[in-house]
Amino acid sequence: MTDKGSGYSYVDSGPIILPMEEGSILRKNYILTYLIALIGGLCFAFLALPLPWILGPVTLLILYKIKGDHQTQSSLLLRDLAFWLLGIQIGLTFQPDTWTNIGPYLLPYALFSFAIIATSLLFAFVLSKRSAMETKTTLIGSVPGGLSAMIAVSESLQGNTVLVTIFHTIRLVSVLFIIPFAATHWLYMDEPAAAAVETHVEPSGYWTLLIYFLSLTAGYVVKKRIPASLIIIPMLLIGACQTAGIALYPLPSVLFIGAQLMIGVHLGHKIVLKDVIRAGRFCGYFFALALLLISLSFLLGFLLSEWTEMGLTTAILSLAPGGLIEMALTAQDAGANPAIVSSLQTIRLLIIVLVMPFLLEWFFNKPKRMNIKN
């Protein structure tokens, strides 16, 4: 039955919003979400807070969703384009000696990264034994890897994906609001080679825009095979051009600000504090784990800087259990070396995403294999 006055179609289960009306509501949510994000970015930029165009939108969108039952929306297309632009931005910070510079850091960095991962897994294993939580969900929820990658791992191993999402959200929020603030206010130092080399491009340099679009195409082609390909592929391709001395056309900085804003919208849309509260007392455990990993990254960062003579801020941000983009952008703001931070964070990301799923699958399927043999 249709009520012409109200614009709703009625069935036995109640009112159903018509497709046209639903589309109108959706467009309104999109516009409102990005407007709120822009206001948040402007406020944080005015207050000179760290990562204003990411943390500003995240903060304001979370507050917006807390009050009432407000809905937000995030465009996957804009998110992907933002990943691509930020991959380019990070790649442009590379210098001719960047690849050579990270060589001496690989062994100690790998050792300290494994120490952080092992600590998180040990914490999760003990927690699962002392609480009613399932071991599988606890372990997947504690690995300091990307949120989307760990959700995929949880679904493939049949863990509790809702709890995994909540636990990684707690870590993400903790890292986003603690690490950038500490790096920019307490650890700031103008380290050598921290700033990107200025590239003077002649008019003929416009052809290098093709390289940017090539990196986008390549990122999409291998999207299902390489984690975070829309960031990693442009970063590596543009970084390779920079180190080879190819003068790329400099993109307007407003594009990179817009990309950060899109990432802020994406994170602010995904983070739902009601879900965090719903997880109850377990949230406290994983918040404690986030603080432990952050403290450990500071300690091991200090040891890494002493061992390798890497700048202290660069070392801490390279080991921090946060996202590649956020830590690389923080490195720029904190006077560290974003090229080294992004390179080492990429290595850690690949280790976690490519190795951890197989390790966890082997661990959880081991009892089944033993039963079959018996």
Rank of each mutant, 00 (worst) to 15 (best):
F256D: 11
S215G: 10
V221W: 15
F123P: 04
L38N: 00
A228C: 12
Q242N: 15
G23R: 05
R348F: 10
L296S: 05
I347Q: 15
H200Y: 12
T137M: 13
D190P: 00
L237Y: 09
E155L: 03
A320P: 02
A218H: 03
Y212N: 12
S9M: 14
E198Q: 09
L289C: 05
P192V: 11
K129N: 13
M327T: 07
I263F: 02
F363W: 15
N101W: 09
P252L: 14
G284R: 05
L122R: 11
Y34L: 11
L289P: 03
R225M: 13
L248V: 08
T135S: 14
L172F: 04
K366H: 12
L32H: 06
T199E: 11
G41E: 01
I88H: 07
V153A: 05
M370R: 15
M235L: 12
V164N: 05
D3Q: 10
C283W: 12
I151C: 06
L267Q: 03
N337G: 06
I25N: 09
I340Q: 07
L127C: 12
L360E: 10
P192A: 12
A195E: 13
H70A: 11
M310A: 12
V126D: 14
D80L: 08
H266D: 06
Y109I: 12
A48M: 12
S74M: 03
A48V: 04
R278E: 09
L293H: 09
L92N: 10
H185K: 08
L237W: 13
S120V: 05
L76N: 13
L121D: 10
A328E: 01
V265I: 09
G103D: 03
V143P: 04
T217H: 12
L296M: 15
L291E: 05
